[in-house]
């Protein structure tokens, strides 16, 4: 099984530690990981802003880089969802279809493809899980509070096996944090208010570390936490699953 690692553009540039934790974690699990050097971005920033047509080049570049892998794994529910849902703007060649079918968010891949739950990690902190929307309602990485049915959450299933982790309940289990890509700047007031409310929910629950499947949400929350000097840390789920504290 050949796995291609996709590191989202902003993680590559701004949060390399998330990429490093991801690759180390996968290698620990004996996955044959390849990192194609020509990768850039999934195209989402343009597409969500309404400029889908400017993202054709990015989409084609993505497929070109990952077409030879059995699976494509990425530490981002949002990017995986974008490839799956919105790569209908380029011609649907066999390669494109293969890439779209085989792209996975990291937790989903570990739990449902590798079928591993206990990663031998330990992380003695009170954790608040932020369920990033595209992973949750797009990829269904967990049950959604709106939908009637079985309760589950991939990220929480993995966290429950991490030694020392205490999962803290939130009053609003899966409300959006307000990042939303360019929304964060075009609707600055609402975006900030949503983030502040989200952080307050975590604080009220006694959370020490907020984690998520997406660094983009965490970047937004961290920006607010740092500006307001609040007693919280943010870490991507890969960093926790790769810890041994």
């Amino acid at each position: 099984m050949k796995v291609g690692l996709f590191i989202p553009c902003y993680i590559n540039q701004l949060y390399p530690q998330v990429g490093i934790a991801t690759i180390e974690l996968l290698e620990k699990l004996n996955v044959d990981v390849g990192y194609p050097s020509g990768q850039t971005c999934c195209g989402q920033p343009m597409a969500n802003s309404g400029f889908e047509y400017e993202s054709n080049g990015a989409c084609s570049n993505f497929v070109e880089n990952f077409k030879d892998f059995d699976y494509i794994v990425t530490p981002s529910g949002s990017c995986a969802y974008h490839v799956k849902k919105h790569y209908d703007i380029i011609p649907q060649t066999e390669e494109v279809i293969k890439v779209r079918n085989n792209v996975y968010e990291l937790c989903d891949f570990i739990l449902n493809i590798l079928k591993i739950k206990d990663l031998g990690a330990s992380f003695p902190y009170k954790i608040g899980v932020h369920k990033s929307c595209h992973g949750l309602r797009g990829l269904r990485l967990g049950s959604c509070s709106e939908v009637v049915g079985k309760q589950y959450s991939y990220i929480e299933e993995l966290l429950q096996e991490v030694k020392g982790v205490e999962l803290m309940p939130l009053s609003r289990t899966d409300e959006c944090c307000g990042f939303g890509g360019t929304f964060a700047v075009t609707e600055e007031a609402i975006s900030v208010k949503m983030g502040k409310d989200k952080i307050q929910d975590h604080l009220d629950s006694g959370v020490e570390v907020i984690t998520a499947t997406d660094t983009s949400c965490l970047m937004h929350l961290e920006g607010l936490i740092n500006r307001n000097k609040q007693p919280l840390k943010v870490l991507h789920i890969a960093e926790i699953l790769n810890s041994n504290l």
């Binding site: 590191i7 590559n12 540039q13 390399p16 075009t186 900030v192 920006g223 607010l224 500006r227």
Partner: peptide, 23 residues
């Protein structure tokens, strides 16, 4: 001009990108 920075800090730019670390 940076609406992001009105109420939020930006991340510190790391010296090395993931790409560079990997190479």
């Amino acid at each position: 001009p940076n609406a992001w920075g009105k109420a939020r800090d930006l991340p510190l730019g790391p010296k090395q990108s993931f790409d560079e670390w990997f190479k």
